[in-house]
Amino acid sequence: MTKKKKSILSDQRFIVLLVVIALTAIFSFMSKEFRQYNTMLSLLDFSYYDLLMAIGVTFPLITGGVDLSIGTGMVCYALIGGTLIRSHGMPVIVAMLVCVLLGVLIGTLNGVLIGVMNLPPFLATLCTCMITRGAGSLCTATPWPGLTQEGGWFHSIFKLTIGTGRSADRYPIGFLWMVILVLLMEFVLNHTKFGRYTIAIGSNKEAAALSGINVKFYHVMVYVVCGLFTGLAAIAYAAVTPTVQPGTGAGLEMDAIGGVFVGGVAATGGYGSVLGTFVGIFVIMLLKTGLPYIGLQANWQQIITGLVLIVAVLIDIIKEKKAAAL
């Protein structure tokens, strides 16, 4: 029995990759500034936190749920981390750990509300979104240490700077970590129990439960993993945001979730891929960074992200309908 190999052209991820290349080409063609190394560098720099959030939220979306608390959560953890450094003299490594721990904590809360208490995912996370936003706005605006300050080493995780001042060479090594994380999570999704049960929950939760899977545990874990990545995103966010502002972060989740949908996750769950998320997020990032270079206000990106999200989901729904009609 041999199966016909599917054409690469029918893979949404490949098409999205083409879109990424096309967008890069268009922006580079239209704007001289855009094609400079520093622009590309900062584009990558600002994509890390979005990407980390997106990797995390891919899992809830595959289960047919969603996590709306990632944007405000990320900002909240970064604020608390910053406060620890500035006001309590904690070393940066402690603040980083706290970020991750808080992420896991809120993730667990989301997981319990959704997986154990059966609240609708969007509603439960809308509430934790408000809660983390509120908690964040109780902090004061706090800058994490700058590159040259004590504790500034954490910037090198994402951007390795050799030399000082204008002549310094900067390398986006964060991109390397992202590739590694994406491959790791793609592996986790396809080749581990956690990943397989994530898909099973999204596809047919009752069947999964009747197969003897501890559905509640894995459902909670999905949100814990999402929270963990949000915690990591908080570190990446602190690295690129000179001063994290309290009360912000609402709407940042949209870029991440939009990216995941562009990457081809099914609107009703059951299918998704981390590689897809990886390419999807760059569509959003290119629009966000590129539009001002071709003379459009940055806010256009918000409108376009909204429309892109709907189009991506509509494509999925139409595909489903066609498949069902056959």
Binding site: L68, G251, M254, N299, Q302, I303, T305, G306
Partner: peptide
């Protein structure tokens, strides 16, 4: 989510 973004934008 989409129309929230569109409204803000």
């Amino acid at each position: 989510m989409a129309s929230m973004n569109i409204a803000k934008g």
